[in-house]
Design a protein around this nucleic acid. Structure first.
Length: 427
RNA sequence: GGGGGGAUACCAGAGCGGUCAAAUGGGGCGGACUGUAAAUCCGCUGCUUCGGCUACGAAGGUUCGAAUCCUUCUCCCCCCA
């Protein structure tokens, strides 16, 4: 199956420039996707782009991952309603290093002719002077053309306006494409559907400057079936970096996908073939409450991102926290085992001496720890029946805890809502 | 340069002298139902030692009393030149 067909049946394809498929069918081609260094880790949203590159490579093509050291300094206006804050050079460098390390885990950089390659556009922009840029690049693209782009139009007709810096972004990205086309024979740029305008500026630039041919392909923006934004939870973004999103939280994120979402995610984020996926769906439909689909999805991605061992730990934690195992089960474990079981959930350390004298729930959850940001909020949630300690619902905000409430003389397990656990360690 | 409009909680957006910690919608959080879904319904959504305290762009002023009236300042938008 060729690359485009692959994306198509998985529901990933959004838009493709005419001729692209024919070109790819002729043999190995090089293509790239740019990654934004706005943070030092990629998140599940970027994972979709990584998957595109993986499919590209599996179809026998040569994938390039571009990290935007230069474009990161400018800021992409696409999909943004307000001017972006610029990152300092140091922060940018730090972010680039983090992202590079992650990309290396997904693509094969040593498989011969179609080995993946990583490039940083800062390398070709750092010595590019402003005058050279406006003469060699700016001259080929009219302002009229740039103004017609949705990302620009939206901002100009909106309230916030747009700086010259962001306006020029599409030229900078357009030049990236030209540079890679010229020096690396990169003939295709891919990206999320919000990147179409930027990518096409690149193909246009290549055509006008060197009368060259280059192609564009974009993938569907991932949306949840309820319309809300993909990749965010109460805790914020879901990151690939285990220090930012623990493997347990990562596993939980996928496990919690709704049925509809799971059906689309499993096509996008796993490499299972069509038959396997359809079989899983059939199985899921006969007993939806077992959530076979979500489990298969969560397992596959967690193993690929964090490894088998972390997946096993996430499963164990999940089974305990959401299973029917009673809290007494903890008594059978030693301290290290308990801490490991809770390794994915936020934990706090409180002095044992203070607890001996008794600590009220409000102080415990809002002062000694930051389970709640204020006592007022803790109180309200308790009144709404949303707080448990050691799996027992708190009924009054005056309840006091002391050493006799400890599990293994060391722990308290707090819950906010059903899904949010916190481990309080007393020492 | 001239004229006009505006700035309210996370966002949008009412309020235009007391009854305003501020309508309504969205978002968020919590509860019920359930499959740790979806949909639906319900509650909460400034802090507090529960006496109060701090809040409606900023600083002053009028008033017993201001988000609401006046003055100055800052920022934004629109029209004309």
């Amino acid at each position: 199956m060729n690359f485009v067909e692959e994306l198509r049946w998985r529901g990933m394809l959004h838009d493709i420039m005419p001729g692209t498929e024919d070109l790819l069918n002729k043999g190995m081609a090089s293509g790239y996707i740019g990654f934004d260094p706005t943070a030092d880790s990629l998140h599940v949203g970027s994972l979709a782009q990584i998957m595109t590159l993986i499919h590209f490579q599996r179809a026998g093509h040569k994938p390039y991952a571009l990290v935007g050291g230069a474009t990161g300094m400018v800021g992409d206006p696409s999909g943004k309603s307000a001017e972006r804050n610029l990152l300092s050079e140091d922060a940018l460098q730090h972010n680039l290093n983090g992202i590079k390390g992650q990309l290396e885990k997904f693509l094969d950089f040593e498989c011969g002719a179609n080995s993946a390659k990583m490039v940083n556009n800062y390398d070709w922009f750092k010595d590019f002077t402003f005058l050279d840029f406006i003469r060699d690049v700016g001259k080929h693209i009219t302002v009229n053309y740039m103004m017609a782009k949705d990302s620009v139009k939206n901002r100009i007709s909106g309230d916030t306006g747009m700086s010259f810096t962001e306006f020029s972004y599409q030229l900078v990205q357009g030049y990236d494409f030209y540079y890679l086309w010229k020096h690396e024979n990169c003939i295709l740029q891919m990206g999320g559907s919000d990147q179409w305008g930027n990518i096409v500026t690149g193909t246009e630039f290549i055509r006008r400057k060197d009368a060259g041919e280059a192609y564009a392909l974009t993938t569907q923006l991932i949306k949840k079936s309820d319309g809300s934004k993909f990749g965010k939870t109460e805790g914020g973004n879901i990151w690939l970096d285990p220090a930012k999103t623990s493997p347990y939280q990562f596993y939980q994120f996928w496990l919690n996908a709704s049925d509809d979402d799971a059906k689309s995610y499993i096509r996008i984020f796993t490499l299972f073939d069509k038959e396997t996926i359809e079989a899983l769906e059939a199985e899921h439909n006969t007993a939806p409450h077992l959530r076979v689909l979500q489990k298969a999805l969560a397992k596959d991605i967690t193993v690929r991102v964090h490894g088998e061992a972390e997946y096993e730990k996430a499963i164990k934690s999940s089974e305990f926290l959401f299973g029917s195992t009673g809290i007494e089960f903890l008594n059978e474990l030693n301290d290290a085992e308990v801490i490991s079981l809770f390794s994915g959930v936020p934990n706090y350390t409180v002095s044992l001496a203070e607890l001996t004298g008794g600590i009220g729930v409000l102080d415990l959850l809002a002062v000694k720890t930051t389970v709640f940001p204020s006592k007022g909020e803790a109180k309200k949630t308790i009144q709404g029946g949303g707080v448990s300690i050691n799996r027992v619902k708190i009924v009054a905000d005056t309840e006091v805890f002391n050493a006799s409430n400890l599990i293994n003389n060391k722990f308290l397990v707090a819950q906010k809502g059903k899904k949010n656990y916190y481990l309080i360690i007393l020492e």
